[in-house]
């Protein structure tokens, strides 16, 4: 039940990000749309790895080694998402750097000013 809710939230976030990406004219809002799509993908990926009544895959006082295999959630999607979050932030940094350069060249943040290529 929980993973259904989380998966639907993630997929909804991807749709909202895509809508914002396609309809806004301001460069910063388009970058926010990209970031929203990335976050939605991370949430959906983690939601797929849920096992019913499972707990975090960390072995400490409350989780014994012997019963670990039967009571934890899937650790692989979480491990992949850890990397993906950092890379998503780095890609956002590159997009923002490009936005700064575009603003310096035309003094406006709307992408309608960049629609025609100039050669």
């Amino acid at each position: 039940m929980i993973s259904h809710v989380v998966l639907t939230t993630g997929l909804l976030l991807i749709l909202i990000g895509l809508w914002g990406l396609l309809t806004h004219r301001d460069i910063l809002r388009i970058i926010i749309g990209f970031s929203l799509m990335g976050t939605g993908t991370h949430i959906a990926t983690v939601a797929i790895g849920y096992v019913s009544n499972g707990t975090a895959p960390i072995i400490d006082r409350t989780l014994d080694v012997s019963q670990a295999a039967s009571r934890v959630v899937d650790p692989i999607p979480s491990a992949l998402v850890v990397t993906a979050i950092v890379i998503g932030m780095a890609v956002t940094a590159v997009m923002l750097a490009f936005a700064i350069r575009l603003y310096d060249s035309k003094k406006t943040l709307s992408i309608d000013a960049f629609m025609d290529s100039k050669w």
Partner: peptide, 23 residues
């Protein structure tokens, strides 16, 4: 996405690769 979300059902036990990693 709707077809993905409707056809998804929670798993009851770990897949073999995950189980081998956890072990």
């Amino acid at each position: 996405f709707a077809s993905l979300a409707v056809g998804y059902s929670e798993q009851y036990s770990l897949r073999p690769l995950a189980e081998s990693y956890v072990r």
